[in-house]
Design a protein around this nucleic acid. Structure first.
Length: 354
DNA sequence: CATACGTGGTT
DNA sequence: TAACCAAGTAT
């Protein structure tokens, strides 16, 4: 007998009981402030809990309210976000804070249908803020929920596939309780995060294994199915470290596109493949000794960087200036490097240089 | 609807 | 160590 939504309702009480007993103590579970819930949800997108905790604490200390975030400089927001990746999220967060202040007097809408209208807030985050902060009866589906549902129902579907998402949202809508939606949604995700894990699911510790089709058929580890992965691109990079009077030369990336507005060391692509910005002209630098080799990965790209000591061939005054392409060149002292909005590669290099 | 978007930890 | 993975969204 295949479990349907009706049979699955039987597992709601045991799952909630389990969640109340074993849930992790996370900073954003100690508040009902929609602003803080929202920040945590934005940070948690495609990002591990352990990586978020520190950033979350610092972020809400620095920007304690929607108003504070709305009034902040973009560069300060990027700086607080630096290291989390997907920097578009930080810009969306900033823009949405300003929109909330301008059009909602800084007050959060309480239902997912309204929240999803805001920039950077998609169906998942809308459901999360509505249900967790306001206990609105709104459902939510993330990677955890998709995996848990695929196993409960024995869906032989690829991870993150449109069909799996469609079915998951339908089931989530059917299961979400009229009261206690926030707790239910978090219980579902918690199960996926600590028991019903992608690899080596702990079915023996699962409070609802009795209702699980995949557990019964031995398919738990196999579901959801793997999805075809795109080929990785290999990129060779020459990175210049220019020291002038105890300061490092950095270039600010354009405000649009990949890692928008972040600072990095000037670099030159040295092999065919993806064109990485900035493509500082070889002629602008005198290249010296090799300092290090660094491997770095960004989505679908593996970057092999050769780091060389360098100096600029044309004079550049200290401070900020713009080159012919409109790029901003910035000198920074070593002490300040750690506090800037740097790309991952640049941060890795800083650690290496000290 | 497929693809782009980052990083740090794990396997 | 290369591949995989993590509380998605915008285009």
């Amino acid at each position: 007998m295949k479990p349907g939504p009706v049979a699955l309702r039987e597992l709601q009480a045991p799952l909630l009981a389990w969640y109340r007993a074993v849930q992790r103590d996370l900073p954003w579970r100690r508040t009902r402030d929609p602003y803080r819930i929202w920040i945590s949800e934005a940070m948690l997108q495609q990002t591990r809990v352990e990586a978020v905790i520190g950033h979350y604490e610092r972020f809400v200390a620095r920007f304690p309210s929607v108003q504070a975030l709305a009034e902040a400089d973009t560069q300060a927001v990027l700086e607080a976000w630096s290291g989390l990746g997907y920097y578009r999220r930080a810009r969306a967060l900033h823009a949405t804070a300003q929109e909330l202040v301008a059009r909602h007097l800084g007050v959060f809408p309480q239902r997912a249908a309204e929240l999803v209208q805001l920039h950077g807030i998609g169906p998942y985050t809308a459901g999360a803020v509505a249900s967790i902060a306001f206990d609105a009866p709104d459902a939510l589906v993330d990677g955890n929920v998709e995996r848990v549902f695929a196993r409960w129902l024995g869906w032989e579907l690829p991870r993150a596939s449109p069909e799996l998402k469609r079915r998951s949202w339908q089931l989530a809508d059917e299961l979400v309780p009229a009261a206690g939606a926030g707790e239910w949604n978090q219980a579902l995700m918690e199960l996926g995060a600590v028991v019903c894990t992608p690899r080596k699911p702990r079915c023996l510790a699962c409070p609802v294994a009795a209702w699980c089709t995949a557990h019964r058929t031995g398919r738990a580890e196999a579901l959801p199915l793997e999805r075809a992965k795109p080929a990785t691109l290999e990129v060779e990079l020459l990175v210049h470290v220019v020291r002038e009077g105890g300061q490092y030369l950095l270039v600010k990336r354009p405000e649009q596109g990949r890692m928008a507005g972040l600072l990095e060391f000037p670099s030159i692509e040295t092999a065919p493949g993806e064109v990485l910005w900035p493509r500082a002209l070889q002629a602008e630098f005198a290249t010296g000794d090799e300092l290090a080799r660094v491997r770095h990965a960004i989505t679908r790209h593996r970057i092999h960087a050769r780091v060389v000591e360098a100096r600029l061939l044309r004079p550049v005054v200290a401070g900020e200036l713009a080159d012919a392409r409109g790029a901003r060149w910035v000198y920074s002292s070593p002490e300040r490097l750690g506090q800037l909005a740097l790309t991952g590669m640049a941060r890795k290099l800083c650690a290496l240089l000290h």
